[in-house]
């Protein structure tokens, strides 16, 4: 089990205590509030991940083959979901991120927020993070 999977397991346990939707959303809201802020200079169209219903901004960089992301969102529930994504991927090796499929959202009962019809930008956020990871992997290979 790699580090992402370990963290996913912890998140699963964190949510497993609650079966009430209000409690689950409370965790998300806490996570949104505790999310490290994104420098306002990145809240521009270049970093925007647009959903039809809510918006996210994402900044990613790599350090020593590991990905580090920061994000912000206008809707707090979407932002809380993004916080979980970042909690999982931040500081992790690029190839682990490329391989991981975020099934944790199934397990914590929030999968519906990832459905394409929700159009809240979360699916695109995950896709974009994976694209960053892939792009950095390629770059690192060509730099070798």
């Amino acid at each position: 089990m790699n580090n992402i999977e370990l963290k996913a397991k912890q998140i699963e346990e964190e949510f497993s205590i609650f079966d009430d939707w209000m409690d689950r959303y409370n965790i998300l809201i806490d996570k949104a509030k505790n999310l490290e802020p994104l420098d306002p200079k990145y809240k521009t169209p270049q970093y925007l991940i647009s959903g039809c219903q809510s918006q996210l901004w994402l900044f990613c960089e790599q350090k020593n083959g590991r990905l580090f992301c920061k994000a912000d969102g206008d809707a707090i529930i979407t932002k809380g979901m993004a916080a979980i994504v970042l909690e999982l991927v931040n500081g992790e090796p690029l190839d682990d991120i490329v391989k991981y499929n975020f099934e944790v959202f199934d397990k914590i009962g929030l999968h519906s927020h990832l459905s394409p019809t929700r159009s809240n930008g979360l699916r695109s956020l995950i896709k974009q993070i994976k694209l960053y990871a892939e792009a950095y992997l390629l770059k690192n290979k060509s730099d070798d």
């Binding site: 959303y25 039809c52 809707a75 979407t78």
Partner: peptide, 21 residues
């Protein structure tokens, strides 16, 4: 309150409304 957040909770309450642009 962002409309998406409102709609998420309304959905849990089984109230179907539309949010967004």
């Amino acid at each position: 309150i962002h409309p998406y957040d409102a709609a998420t909770v309304l959905d849990e309450l089984k109230i179907a409304v539309r949010v967004g642009h």
